[in-house]
Design a protein around this nucleic acid. Structure first.
Length: 566
RNA sequence: GCGCACGUAGCUCAGCUGGAUAGAGUGUCGGCCUCCGGAGCCGAAGGCCACAGGUUCGAAUCCUGUCGUGCGCACCA
């Protein structure tokens, strides 16, 4: 609908320009259209006149008048266009226009608001990519849900999306992990071996050690001889654990990308060579240093150590080069906010290699602080003390964890209150939306039980029975959904979907309660009943689609809660 | 010290990319079930949008500075 109004205004503007009443517009001028908060301001509004005031050297109200005068005569799908306030253009849709919108919702069904074809730009979303040295914690969970939801959002908006996890399976930490497991195993089989200094302390390795013995028997060997065996075992078992945790959050990947393959295929060397050829690498005390300061970084960065081993950064250069070479139009990296200082050097490497650095987007996800019983749970990775993701998901459920993570913008820090997430009451937003969906379904069930058919396309007379202002507003809200999806996708902001769902279901709850004594959905009036059931079915469609997009269940009925008994 | 974020109701947070009277949830107070789900709804109270300047018809939103919070500043990943 927004496009339609936008086009209308554009037509009018062009006619006004032709008539010499307004100066020419820039080609790429996008007509701003918004849905007014206040229903008195119409169904759709535009502030074009205000934005053009300067270039046109006319008052906003005068411009608005000109636009209204030049509106095409044949636009009877709109009943009124008026100038209001400081120069707003307010439009009101004809009833038939609105009814057609509702038909469109129901026709679209499970795909309403979502792209039917994914022929848009190719996007790679890389997220989580936690080092396989231990289980995921709550902070990873937020990044996981955020990245996954952004990917879903892009998918719904018609992009060609792939999800990827980058496995840091190379380097010191892998050695350390292997050594830690080795020590545990040796100690377990009666060959006491101290954990290396700075080794991994977590309890999970104890379990891994037991698994190791179960599989390989009592293998008394030195790490120097059989180190790789321990490294691989530890890494694989932790990765399995990570995969399981993610699967519990309904997250799966198209690609698991091991860093190791970049080294094996010489791509790391190759990337360094490219930079050398471009003459932006110099030697310093035996190490190779990439002059990232040429591209705005604070400091130059080492890519090859004195001992000849490439740094993590070198591999990451190769990795991002590889992403570009795979032909993605956009690569989105979802990172913890603590990695923000890393952005300039990665962008620098893309630029230095001749790629368009704007193809890389970094989505920073701020930290989560976990609250239990009104108190923050202290977390620190160093001490091995952190709240594991699996315990929180187990406690609160994937629905609540996903929805609550998705209710916050990525760039603001989040308090995650376990008590709220666990509660099956109104203070938990996810239940509010799910309850609304269940309530809607319950009405449809009731109608069915009474033998009332809701035609796939309600009759015109039935639609015309939808005369209450709340009904009009509800239909308008439903027509916004496709736009919300698109906007959220472009902004990479899943929280917009969550808020939209809250707002829309609230409007329904309000409507429902207000009229349940007078104008019920199912009544003796067959036309009103048919129209309202169509509306309710439209609401069900949109709420289900929105929840589905966030991978949150849309239950047709809620489990009986213990709080209802007295 | 330098850099990147963020300061909005008691608390947790939105605010449609510069527009109409700054919103919601929660908490507090007061109302609403002869049942299509009260896990809901309605109302009241609650704000110097951290502070000070600037940009303009117009600023919570953009710019500068100050203060505060978080996070970074490795030949670790």
């Amino acid at each position: 609908m927004r496009e339609r109004v936008g086009q209308l205004v554009r037509q009018s503007l062009e006619r006004a320009v032709e008539a010499g009443e307004l100066p020419p517009l820039p080609d790429d001028y996008a007509v701003p259209i918004e849905k007014p908060r206040n229903p008195e301001h119409g169904d759709s509004a535009s502030n074009v006149a205000m934005t053009l005031a300067r270039v046109a050297r006319k008052s906003p109200r005068d411009i608005a008048d000109i636009i209204v005068r030049h509106l095409p005569e044949d636009c009877d799908w709109i009943t009124g266009a008026e100038v209001a306030g400081p120069g707003f253009l307010n439009f009101r849709f004809a009833d038939d226009t609105l009814f057609n919108c509702l038909h469109a919702v129901r026709d679209g069904g499970a795909s309403y608001g979502h792209a039917e074809k994914n022929d848009g730009p190719r996007v790679l979303v890389e997220f989580v990519s936690a080092n396989p040295t231990g289980p995921l914690h709550v902070g990873h969970g937020r990044g996981a849900v955020m990245g996954d939801a952004v990917a879903s959002l892009l998918d719904a908006a018609g992009y060609q999306v792939e999800r990827e996890y980058y496995i840091n399976d190379v380097g010191n930490q892998m050695q350390m992990l292997g050594r830690s497991l080795h020590a545990r195993v040796q100690t377990l089989i009666g060959n006491p071996t101290p954990l290396p200094e700075d080794g991994y302390q977590g309890d999970y390795l104890q379990k891994t050690a037991e698994d190791f013995v179960a599989q390989h028997g009592e293998l008394k060997v030195t790490f120097e001889d059989e180190g790789q065996l321990f490294i691989d075992f530890a890494k694989d078992s932790i990765l399995e654990d990570i995969k399981a945790d993610l699967a519990n959050l309904r997250i799966t990947y198209d690609t698991w990308f091991p860093e190791r393959t970049l080294h094996a295929s010489q791509k790391v060397e190759g990337a360094v060579k490219h930079l050398q050829d471009a003459d932006i690498i110099y030697e310093r005390e035996g190490a190779l240093v990439f002059r990232t300061t040429d591209f705005g970084d604070d400091d130059d960065r080492v890519v090859v150590r004195t001992d000849g081993r490439p740094t993590y950064f070198a591999a990451d250069i190769a990795y991002h080069k590889d992403k570009m070479d795979r032909g993605f139009d956009t690569a989105i990296d979802v990172w913890g906010a603590d990695h923000h200082g890393y952005i300039p050097r990665v962008r620098a490497s893309l630029q230095a290699l001749g790629y368009d650095a704007d193809k890389l987007e970094v989505l920073l996800v701020q930290f989560v602080s976990l609250v239990r019983d009104g108190e923050q749970v202290k977390m620190s990775t160093r001490s091995g003390k952190f709240e594991e993701l699996k315990s929180v998901v187990g406690e609160c459920g994937a629905d609540a964890v996903r929805f609550l993570f998705l209710m916050r913008r990525a760039d603001s820090q989040q308090e995650f209150d376990v008590e709220v997430a666990k509660s099956q009451t109104m203070e938990n937003p996810v239940y509010y939306v799910q309850y609304g969906h269940a309530r809607v379904c319950s009405i449809l069930r009731k109608a069915q039980a009474e033998g009332i058919e809701v035609p796939e396309k309600a009759r015109d007379e039935a639609m015309q029975a939808l005369t209450l202002p709340e009904e009009r507003q509800l239909i308008l809200a439903l027509t916004e959904y496709p736009y919300i999806v698109r906007r959220a996708a472009e902004a990479r902001e899943p929280h917009q979907i969550a808020f939209y769902l809250m707002d829309t279901i609230k409007a329904f709850h309000s409507y429902y309660t207000r009229y349940k004594g007078s104008e019920r959905v199912i009544s003796d009036d067959p036309l009103k009943t048919e129209g309202r059931l169509a509306l309710v079915d439209g609401i069900r469609t949109v709420i289900a689609n929105g929840l589905g997009l966030l991978k949150v269940h849309a239950p047709e009925r809620m489990a009986q809660s213990e709080t209802t008994s007295e």
